[in-house]
Amino acid sequence: MAAGPMRIRAASNGTETEVKILMSHDMETGQRKDASGNLIPAHHITEITATHNGRVVLAGQFGPAVAKNPYLQFKFKGGAKGDKVSVSWVDNKGEKRTDEVVVS
């Protein structure tokens, strides 16, 4: 399955910005078998980076044990309405995706 767009929400309360991300990814563990008993190869996000106005605010590494369609929530200081928060991920097959959202 090709990865769909992420759903990102970034909300500022004046001092802090709360970011909620819902990625669209299979996060196949490599432990499961298909109907004929063959192992389904692992396919999962390995790295995720969130930036605010070009500055990294969170760098994460995922193993296959992160749930399908990974959800992530964090907060950082600063961030005003209208700023941009950008999130990118890379998976173990080299697929990438970047999405951007405006802080509300």
Binding site: A59, V66, L72, Q73, F74, K75, K77
Partner: peptide, 21 residues
Amino acid sequence: LAASFTLPEGTAADVSTRIKM
């Protein structure tokens, strides 16, 4: 290990996600 996060200065030590068990 399920996931790890590096928090630069200014990012709160408060991270939530969903994992498989």
